[in-house]
């Protein structure tokens, strides 16, 4: 092992590195500061969740990671290279799903394979096979030819998830993907999400996930680490390591360790959450 290799290893230790990221909107004279001075290393293969009260800048952070917004201050790197604009290696699942209303379930899921670089080098048959596989994975078999407006909220959610999976991005950026669902469906999809992410596989084979939620339970259940943001402006409040054993399941949800972690995170944002509710 040479020195150069050692440095390389420490570099790749962070998949994505945010240093001093800030973002303001609106007129320069009267800016709305959405995110301020956020520094964070996201490790390869890690499931990172971000929690914080509504309006604290979570979506803004995700959009910057996706390359859809440019930070006002600070730098963002991916594998050591600055992030400039979107790239197919980072897949996004939007808070409002952003399904194409004129495409069927199958058309939506195959969109990136047909029109984007994700399908480059694949034959039509291979693409179809990939689409069929993710449709099965998220449990949409039988609904392939339906349009989004014919689907329930939960099914749309699955389409958005399947579209993300079909492109096989290295990094998955997900904005409150389960927020619109009822409690039961949500629990089922949390389990499925961990399975798809590969919680049964060795850590080296997992994809990197940045997952936004406003639910503390969900953040703790899914994550390797939970990032807690405070609001107005959105700042890093705390990073909590979640050392609950994997694979996680219903037993995890009932465990004392889980409850303690949720309680601890709730304590650190309760004051702010109350304030946000009252104003």
């Amino acid at each position: 092992m040479t020195d150069a290799r050692m440095t390389d290893a420490t570099m790749t230790d962070a998949k994505i590195r945010l240093s001093g990221i800030g973002k303001s909107f609106g007129a320069p004279a009267a800016p709305v500061v959405a995110v301020q001075d956020l520094s964070l290393d996201i490790r390869p293969g890690e499931f990172l969740t971000i929690v914080g009260p509504s309006g604290c800048g979570k979506t803004t952070v995700l959009n910057m990671l996706a390359g859809l917004e440019t930070p006002t201050t600070g730098t963002m790197t991916l594998d050591g290279r600055p992030i400039r604009g979107p790239g197919a290696e980072r897949g996004v699942m939007f808070q409002d799903y952003a399904l194409f209303p004129w495409k069927t379930v199958r058309g939506n899921i195959g969109f990136g394979l047909v029109h984007g670089p994700a399908g480059a080098g694949l034959s039509a048959a291979e693409r179809e096979e990939r689409v069929r596989r993710v449709i099965e994975l998220v449990g949409l078999t039988g609904s392939e030819e339906k349009y989004p407006h014919q689907l329930s909220g939960g099914m749309r959610q699955r389409v958005a998830l399947a579209r993300l999976m079909a492109n096989e991005p290295q990094i998955l950026l997900m904005d409150e993907p389960l927020a619109a669902l009822d409690a039961q469906t949500r629990i089922i999809l949390q389990d499925e999400l961990l399975r798809i992410w590969g919680q049964d596989k060795p850590a080296a084979q997992r994809r990197t996930v940045v997952y936004i939620t406003h639910s503390i339970d969900e953040a703790v259940f899914l994550a390797d680490r939970v990032v807690v943001l405070s609001s107005h402006p959105g700042r890093l409040k705390r990073i909590v390591e979640i050392d609950l054993p994997r694979p996680r399941d219903d037993a995890t949800r009932l465990s004392k360790g889980f409850a303690d972690l949720c309680q601890s995170i709730w304590q650190s944002i309760r004051e702010e959450a109350y304030r946000a509710t009252m104003t």
Binding site: L68, P86, A88, V92, H115, G116, P117, A118
Partner: peptide, 18 residues
Amino acid sequence: IEPNLMRAAYTMGVGALT
């Protein structure tokens, strides 16, 4: 047009003309 529709295609690496 829903802005996220264009953005979704953008994040999938779909070119501007497409």
